[in-house]
Simulated scan of single mutants.
Amino acid sequence: MKGEKYLFVVSGPSGTGKDTVVANLLKKHPEIQHTVSATTRPPREGEKDGINYHFMTRTDFEKHLAEDQIVEHTQYCGNYYGTLRSEIEGRMALGIPVILVIEVEGAGNIKRMYPGATTIFVLPPDMEELERRLRNRGTENEETIQRRLKRAETEIANSVDYDEHVVNVQVETCADSLYSIIQFRLKHGKDE
């Protein structure tokens, strides 16, 4: 599809700070846009439809899936989460750089659908720092932390398929590295 060079997919293990890095990047570079995911979970207090998520019923989500209007999705805690085709293709057609922050499995699906997209993997400085970050969240029990660390090892080992890698030692520096990759790809990338 024309405009694929405008599509950027960011992934990384839980605890690497990928959402924080992308938020920093978007704050400094508002010309780059972030997709709003669709979900079947109910809105939390203060969340707004179309801003935090596109809130849908399970029936609506499944209808969108059947009509091929969702390009990647997952189920978590009994709810669907996914990316609407309209969220990315409209921006690509207009030449607006767009970032998806999604899981590794979803990133592979996006790359198959849009081979001209750029995939970027955010790495922790090392596994000890990743464990420290997960523990400092104070939101998970020991079993969950160990499960996330094990999953991180697998995701890092499989990250060889990503186009680019950045290490999040410091958020601002990592966001600047992300921006440099985006600028390079926009200048030199090829539409498929």
Rank of each mutant, 00 (worst) to 15 (best):
K2S: 10
K5R: 15
F8S: 04
F8I: 02
S11L: 01
S14M: 14
S14Y: 03
G15T: 00
G15P: 03
G15W: 09
G15S: 06
T16V: 14
T16P: 00
G17Y: 10
G17Q: 09
K18E: 01
D19W: 04
V22H: 10
A23V: 04
A23D: 15
K28R: 12
H29C: 01
H34M: 15
T35H: 12
V36Y: 09
A38S: 13
T39A: 08
T40M: 03
P43F: 11
P43I: 02
R44E: 14
R44S: 13
G46F: 10
D49C: 08
I51M: 09
Y53Q: 05
H54M: 03
F55W: 06
F55N: 07
F55L: 02
R58D: 12
R58W: 01
R58A: 10
D60H: 12
F61Y: 01
K63C: 02
Q69V: 00
H73E: 07
G82T: 10
L84V: 04
S86N: 06
S86K: 13
E87R: 07
R91S: 08
M92Q: 08
I96S: 08
P97H: 07
V101S: 10
V101L: 08
I102L: 13
I102D: 07
E103D: 15
I110N: 00
K111G: 00
R112H: 10
Y114W: 06
Y114R: 03
T118H: 10
T118M: 10
I120Q: 05
I120E: 00
L123Y: 15
L123W: 08
P124I: 07
P125Q: 13
D126T: 05
E128H: 11
E131I: 00
E131H: 04
R132P: 00
R132G: 01
R133S: 03
G138A: 03
G138T: 07
T139M: 11
E140A: 11
E140S: 10
N141G: 15
E142L: 09
T144G: 02
R147T: 06
L149R: 01
L149P: 02
K150I: 01
A152F: 00
T154I: 13
E155P: 00
A157T: 03
S159T: 01
E164W: 06
V169C: 05
V169W: 12
Q170V: 14
E172Y: 03
T173S: 14
T173K: 15
A175P: 07
D176R: 11
D176F: 06
S177A: 13
I182H: 06
R185N: 11
K190G: 05
D191F: 07
D191K: 03
